[in-house]
């Protein structure tokens, strides 16, 4: 038995880049994720929050070992005390480590839903478990005999979460599980993940919806242009002064109850990444030093990638 004091998943200095051909045969390496750090403990729900195009989905694909062939990944992943190698993830994915996908396109259009959740197995145990899950999600049993195109958006979402529940996961990675759901359904979906965490699994939810993440997650990792810029406890978001990074504070202020303010500028594209701090061009506090190396350092029980902590 591995020690249960070690985190479920620890990611250190993860970077993912793509090889791309540009004009003829010149190969360019596009760094999509650079220096990503996060830790998920048992029973903990961590939300990775970032706007679209920040490379969040690749994080999930990187952990699951399903990056496309022209992508390369560096850094360290440690699952329950031991390195998560390619071989190890191939053994663990689909039972101990599960992913909840982003959209209906991840379901086979020609396979009945029930069969699909059970991966085509006719095992009676599995079927029983499936019935229980359907009951819990208030899905009718006849839905098992339907095809993905016959489902509503909310049903599809529940079916995709069911693919995780049918296993006995210790680590759940949910990639944008809520878009397209109205608030009530989205909240309920997040609660399902919360339940999984309460049952002892480590849950990583990748989302662009900070407000929703704050309601259920324990910890929030803020992602900006491929960098983790802050790791904060969900409770830190109660008070803007508890937050560490200017971008996180900007996100906080963008929430309707907190002023609904937006900051000018856009997230830089990978090819036009500024030197040093990726947020510097939009930051009010930038100085010449911001173009240098910015360490990811511990501040008040969290982490921040900024030279000036408030």
């Amino acid at each position: 038995m591995e020690k249960n004091t070690s985190p479920v998943l620890e990611i250190r200095h993860m970077n993912i880049s793509f090889l791309q051909y540009e004009k003829g045969f010149r190969q360019v390496e596009l760094p999509v994720i650079s220096d990503l750090n996060l830790t998920i403990e048992e029973g903990e729900m961590v939300a990775v929050v970032g706007s679209s195009g920040s490379g969040k989905s690749l994080l999930a694909h990187g952990v699951m070992g399903i990056l496309p062939y022209n992508a390369s990944m560096g850094g360290e992943m440690i699952y329950r005390g031991q390195p998560l190698t390619r071989k190890r993830i191939q053994k663990l994915r689909g039972n101990e480590i599960v992913m909840v996908p982003q959209s209906t396109s991840y379901l086979d259009p020609l396979m009945k839903v029930g069969q699909q959740i059970c991966k085509g197995s006719r095992d009676e145990e599995k079927k029983k478990k499936l019935n229980q899950i359907f009951h819990r999600f208030s899905l009718e049993e006849k839905v098992q005999q339907q095809y993905p195109f016959e489902l509503s958006g909310g049903m599809t979402r529940r079916i995709m979460i069911s693919t995780a529940l049918i296993e006995n996961p210790r680590l759940v990675i949910a990639d944008e599980p809520t878009p397209g759901l109205h608030l009530k359904m989205a909240k309920r979906a997040m609660e399902h993940f919360r339940q999984l965490a309460d049952m002892g699994a480590g849950v990583l939810v990748i989302t662009h919806d900070l407000e929703l993440a704050l309601e259920t997650a324990d910890k929030v990792v803020v992602f900006y242009a491929g960098h983790t810029i802050e790791e904060a406890n969900a409770s830190d978001f109660k008070e803007v002064s508890l937050l560490r990074h200017p971008y996180t504070r900007a996100l906080w202020k963008a929430i309707p109850q907190n002023g609904f303010e937006s900051i000018p500028g856009i997230q830089p594209y990978v090819k036009e990444m500024p030197k040093g701090c990726p947020f510097a061009p939009r930051c009010e506090k930038r100085t010449a030093e911001c173009e240098g190396e910015i360490p990811y350092r511990k501040v008040r029980d969290g982490y921040v990638r900024c030279l000036y902590d408030a």
Binding site: I66, N95, S105, D108, P109, M111, G120
Partner: peptide, 26 residues
């Protein structure tokens, strides 16, 4: 190259299972 085969891979399905469950069917 579809998302559903990618997902099947993420769910630990072997090449044979992927063929049997998704490839042949589609």
């Amino acid at each position: 190259e579809s998302d559903y085969v990618l997902f099947a891979r993420a769910r630990g399905e072997s090449n044979w299972q992927i063929f049997k469950n998704h490839g042949f069917r589609n």
